[in-house]
Lab assay of single mutants.
Amino acid sequence: TEEYTYTDKEKADRAAKEWANRGYTVTVTQDGPTYRVRVG
C-alpha cells in the first residue's frame, strides 16, 4: 500500500482515476486541507 498526499482536490481525483484505470484499488480520504490517495 502506498499513500500520496495532495493539497489540490482536482489533482487527487486525477491521480485516483489514473491508478484505478491501471487496476489498483484506490481510496481517497480528506484530511483537513489535504487529500490522501491510498493505492493498493
Rank of each mutant, 00 (worst) to 15 (best):
G23V: 00
R38S: 14
A12M: 04
T1E: 12
W19P: 00
R38M: 13
N21G: 10
K17A: 13
R22K: 14
A16D: 01
E3S: 06
T1G: 12
D13N: 10
D8W: 03
T25F: 12
K17L: 13
R38K: 12
E18G: 06
R38Q: 14
T34D: 07
R38A: 11
T25N: 10
G32T: 02
V37F: 04
A16N: 02
T25E: 11
Y6I: 02
G32H: 03
T7E: 11
R14Q: 14
D8V: 06
N21S: 14
R38N: 12
D13H: 12
Y4V: 05
K11A: 15
K9G: 06
Y24L: 05
T5A: 08
W19L: 06
R36D: 02
R36M: 08
G32R: 01
A20N: 07
D13K: 08
G32S: 02
T25D: 09
T1W: 15
T7F: 13
T5G: 05
Y6D: 01
T25Y: 12
G40E: 15
W19D: 01
T27P: 00
A15P: 00
D13Q: 12
W19A: 04
T25V: 12
D8I: 06
T34R: 08
T25P: 06
T29D: 07
T7S: 10
T7N: 11
T1H: 13
Y24T: 02
T5C: 09
T1R: 09
A20T: 11
T25M: 10
Y35F: 11
E2T: 15
D31I: 12
D8F: 04
E10W: 11
V39S: 01
P33Q: 12
G23P: 00
V28C: 06
E18W: 15
R22N: 07
K9A: 09
V37N: 00
K9R: 12
E3G: 05
T1A: 12
R38G: 05
D31H: 09
E3Q: 06
R38I: 15
W19T: 01
V37Y: 01
P33I: 09
V39C: 05
E2I: 15
T27V: 11
E2H: 15
A16I: 06
E3R: 04
E2R: 15
T1Y: 15
E10M: 09
Y6E: 01
N21K: 13
Y6A: 01
D31N: 08
V28G: 01
T27K: 07
R14D: 11
V28T: 05
E18I: 11
T25L: 11
A20R: 14
R36L: 13
T5K: 07
R14F: 10
E18D: 10
R38V: 15
A20Q: 12
